[in-house]
Design a binder for these strands. Structure first.
Lengths: 344, 344
DNA sequence: TTGTACGCGTTATCAT
DNA sequence: ATGATAACGCGTACAA
């Protein structure tokens, strides 16, 4: 395996091949790219030599010439969140099918890091950008640069809640929450609590609206006592749950939660308090974590956000923008439905 | 925010700036790179103009010129495995500190995809490669190419078990398993089962050796009845567990498992069988999954593999190779110790 | 202090 | 059918 270790110090370029073959650089280039005007025998000689010497075209040179990189940049907050890693799968799949490669960059929910990532991708002249903004992002100068250079940007999942004109691909979190609530009502619950996420997050409110509308559409009265908010901090979640279950005359029998990790904290806490009807409480959260099958008191269902599909829709839209099939000024908004998955 | 939307159609290059400023391209270049020979006032004018026009140097052009990309390639099987995403954190951290960017590519444990990724990174002329090979990888031609071009490669975590001469950074999986076994012995267990992973995986055996040695060093007799193997398939795991707990005269009281997901399946199954001493069984697996805190019958401890540290060691070694502080032929092997984390 | 000229590796146009 | 040449954007040795 290590046989041909000759440490070629002179890089194998077209010029190098040309010299070896005593031909011109342009002939070699054309032969490798299978130009019709090149003699079959010549092609064969060139291609053999190229293979033998492990010729690998230099992408930087090609990018420079072609004024495009065939690279899609992705900026996202965190690779530890399965939502994002699953969404990447959808992006990659469709991108490579269309001859694009993907560069992933994490912001760690830090604005500085997001700006750095953006600048790196800008310098790399990516052909398009897919971004889920950090929690801190309020100013978009570093992302607007792309569009100013004519590089399309698609915001996905996390996006500016105020009405920035931009291309968006979002999970239909309203519909997901609506279905979950409706499902619980269908199972006979009348006292359904809603545990929301950070209030500044755009879809906290969409989800709440899904909850409210499901109640209304099914004639279940709404009570503000059944609503609480938390960030992702455990203490905070416990405080919220305490509040929701404080009034013994007014005790929720079901729970819809913003995200499963929060829900797990809630369930764990409720269990630890020896809540009298703990076993009857039915809960649902966003996520559909694979881990659920190991829990002794699992949620009755999960709101599957289909991250692969979100990613796929983002890259599809982006490619249409790159190919000018959609005008960059013609801002698109794509919603991807959630699916309620009942655990068995 | 969208104010300055002028859709600059002419790209802002050094040449463009030079024309605007009525100077030569090289002066502009030098001014931007803060050459000492350039007049302070000139520098200022150039830098202002560059900022105003959002000049962004073209990385492809620079790569071409400098014959290096300041990019590190990473190929790994899967972003859904937290071991790998956590290891990336270590890589990124240290890479960016040293002026390198990171391109991540997933093989999905598919050799074809791994080859594609390798070729992509080769064409991009990454300055170094960090790779955790796919399960299928037996032939290394696609990875050897890098070293043939003078680009150093560091194999991490997953690596060829036969003695290929290459740079390696590995978790000290022997030590991890040794400590776990010893810990269980210390808690009074004499019948400790070992549930191993796929037999072809290199560190299945290292771990087994850790187990065996801990038994021997502490005077606990070994029995082949206490050893079983599984791949990551659930059915397979259950079959293995059935075997381990088949003989009622010879029932394990503790369990060391190859990886936590396997262990969780095992625990779940044992619980479902109403095993008489289920509550007394103590178990440990590799991973330290954050979800453990939500389990009702959690492992007593976890073997934390410190993936961030593995990643950090990999990039550190790679940078030394890139900087020729270590000779490429002088193959290194770095072991990163595991740490036993006791829950509760 | 600034400018000229060349080369990095590749593709494409235009000659030959 | 093949070759010479220019161009992509940038950095730098050398000239002015």
């Amino acid at each position: 395996m290590r046989l041909e270790k000759m440490m070629n110090n002179t890089p194998v370029t077209l010029k190098f091949l040309a010299e070896k073959l005593k031909m011109s650089v342009s002939t070699v280039s054309k032969a490798l790219n299978n130009y019709p005007t090149i003699n079959a025998y010549t092609k064969q000689r060139v291609q053999e030599m190229a293979r033998e010497l492990h010729f690998t075209p230099n992408k930087s040179a090609i990018n420079l010439k072609e004024k495009r990189s065939r690279i899609i940049g992705v900026i996202l907050p965190n690779l530890l969140d399965h939502f994002f890693t699953r969404s990447i799968y959808g992006v990659e799949q469709f991108a490579t099918q269309n001859g694009y490669n993907v560069i992933i960059s994490q912001s760690h929910d830090d604005l500085e890091k997001e700006i750095q990532s953006a600048n790196m991708l800008l310098r790399s002249r990516v052909d398009g950008l897919i971004v889920a903004i950090s929690k801190q992002t309020q100013d978009f100068a570093h992302l607007d640069q792309f569009e100013q250079m004519g590089t399309p940007v698609v915001y996905y999942t996390r996006n500016p809640s105020f009405n920035l004109s931009c291309h968006k691909v979002l999970g239909n979190t309203f519909q997901g929450c609506y279905e979950a609530t409706k499902f619980l009502i269908g199972r006979g619950h009348k006292k359904i609590a809603y545990l929301g996420g950070p209030k500044m997050t755009n879809f906290t409110h969409d989800r709440f609206n899904g909850y409210i509308n499901a109640l209304k559409d099914n004639g279940v009265p709404f009570s503000a006592k059944f609503v609480a908010y938390t960030d992702f901090d455990k203490e905070n979640t416990i405080a919220a749950i305490k509040n929701l279950f404080a009034d013994s005359d007014h005790m929720p029998t079901a729970l819809v939660a913003f995200k499963e990790p929060i829900l797990f904290d809630a369930i764990k806490y409720l269990k630890s308090t020896n809540h009298p009807n703990f076993n009857k409480i039915e809960s649902i959260g966003f996520g559909n974590n694979a881990f659920i099958s190991y829990l002794d008191s699992p949620p009755i269902a999960s709101i599957e956000e289909n991250p692969e599909s979100v990613g796929e829709n983002a890259i599809k839209l982006l490619l249409q923008l790159i190919n000018k099939e959609i005008d960059m000024e013609n801002y698109q908004k794509v919603m991807v439905d959630c699916k309620l998955v009942v655990h068995g």
